[in-house]
Amino acid sequence: MPRAFTPKVVTANALLEGDVIYQTATGWSRDLAEAEVLTDEADADLRLIDAAQQVDSVVGAYLADVDASADTPKPTHFREDFRAKGPSNYAHGKQEAASHV
């Protein structure tokens, strides 16, 4: 039996800053909480193809697993957790951006 499809988001790096970004229903966000959660495999594949075609703004798009049981998607693997948060030795990247809000 094929493995059941688990919820995913499309993620990539922004071309100019290299920052981690997530696909939303209408564009891209730097915040995982705003990502569009994809629960249908065919839909996810299409959304990934769409992302991969945006060569002048996005690099290395792929589907990442998320836990969709709460209000906003949460990473299921520690690598995605670090990507969503930023490095642990300095409050740089997304943590720094968050502190400016």
Partner: peptide
């Protein structure tokens, strides 16, 4: 990106987890 990647690597530029 596939075309650019070998060119940037020749010049020491990587794309890492959070940034270049």
């Amino acid at each position: 990106e596939d075309e650019f990647k070998p060119l940037r690597l020749m010049n020491g530029l990587y794309l890492q987890l959070h940034a270049y």
